[in-house]
Design a protein around this nucleic acid. Structure first.
Length: 164
DNA sequence: GCCAACGTTGGC
DNA sequence: GCCAACGTTGGC
């Protein structure tokens, strides 16, 4: 099997990501309670394409958006590859997409497992104050993507700032 | 609640 | 295929 080019350290940890969720919809504590969950409801093509490129064991920074506070509150691990998002076919779901056909699904979802809850939430201000995190897409002007790639170094740094 | 920024839609 | 209008996102 081809060695993943983004597995820079050969430690089995591949690409890292940051995923946003509104805590009032689904929080890090919900994920801890559930153990794992299908990360569904993504309705943005760029974010969907990131979901499609996720691999098992990819690390995820779990970010609370529109939260109190707003910031990274934990980590998760990808445990299931992208599959069709069932909510796109459910007329009662907010994510229902009448144009999406079962034989050619438009939206997908991955399965993630709870990783950790940070001792301290890493707020936007904390992220912004750390020079080594300047490149994070969440800090760029106007970024609204709910899923963005982060580097392994950024992942490690944020976890360290979170004190766990 | 404001509003800048962005994605999507649809008329042409 | 352009682009104005509209809806949504999400930090502040």
């Amino acid at each position: 099997m081809a060695r993943r080019t983004d597995d820079e350290n050969g430690d089995g940890i591949g690409q890292c990501w940051l995923a946003k969720s509104e805590p009032s919809v689904y929080s890090i504590d919900d994920l801890r309670r559930d153990g794992s969950t299908l990360w569904d409801g993504i309705r943005n093509y760029q974010a969907r394409n990131f979901l499609r490129s996720m691999q098992v064991n990819d690390r995820v920074l779990f970010h609370h958006s529109s939260g109190d506070p707003t910031g990274v509150v934990g980590t998760a691990v990808v445990v299931g590859l992208a599959q069709p998002d069932p909510t796109q076919f459910d007329p009662r779901s907010e994510g229902f997409d009448e144009a999406s056909k079962r034989e050619d699904p438009r939206w997908c979802a991955v399965t993630v497992r709870f990783g950790s809850r940070l001792a301290v939430p890493v707020t936007m201000a904390m992220l912004r104050a750390d020079r080594s995190l300047k490149g994070m897409r969440i800090l760029q002007r106007g970024n609204r993507l709910s899923v963005t790639p982060v580097t392994a170094a950024e992942f490690a740094r944020v976890v360290k700032l979170g004190g766990s």
